[in-house]
Amino acid sequence: MSYILIIGAKSDIAKSVARKYAENGYDIYLAARNSSELEDFANDINLRTQKTAICLDLDILDIASHESFYNRLEEKPLGIISVAGYLGEQDKAQVDFNESKKIIDTNYVGIVSLINIVANDFEKRKSGFIVGISSVAGDRGRKSNYIYGSAKAALTTYLSGLRNRLHEANIQVLTVKPGFVATKMTEGMDLPEKLTAQPEEVANDIFNAQQKGKNVLYSKWIWRWVMVIIKSIPEFQFKKMSI
């Protein structure tokens, strides 16, 4: 058996990723809060692919529990895919630090804590891969979501440094930057059709990029070029814009 550990397994992207890996012969650890809610989904994976999916309780904000969570895994995973994230509400976060903190802790602090532990184990074993779902929102701060964006920027930088460190141990670190994705998180938003991916598309992109040993993935691919343009706008101009 060969397990992939998926963190934040309740999201739509996570579910698509889980199915994609199971279809390709992997067993799956589904880690999330109240993971019993994922039992039906685990059963679905098993029926579709005849692979095993195991639900595990994990609270990404409960840092103290991370070490024992990982130690309890009898069979260590071949790879970890972190999909945990929290978009939050920008307006609320500006006036309520608790909201800011929740955004930062969920998208950055908690993930660093967990991936540190996994990375050390992979480095020792000289095998494994790490996939972190960051966001194009981390490529440049915009007024509409810069608390979320800055946490994702930190995650992107963390993953880049980790990639540098683990290169010698031959551990792949893949940073994924999705653009708009049609999920529960974005329900009700008026997203432009051509720039919006379905979760299955993102999962396919992640699987292919991971299998090919890539470092950074934009999904849809066009976002790489959208962000090149957005990043190239001079700051004196950018600060006046609403995008």
């Binding site: 739509d12 039906d40 989904f41 059963n43 679905d44 029926l47 579709r48």
Partner: peptide, 9 residues
Amino acid sequence: KPHDLFISF
């Protein structure tokens, strides 16, 4: 479409 689980076989 999001309501898409296999229940039994």
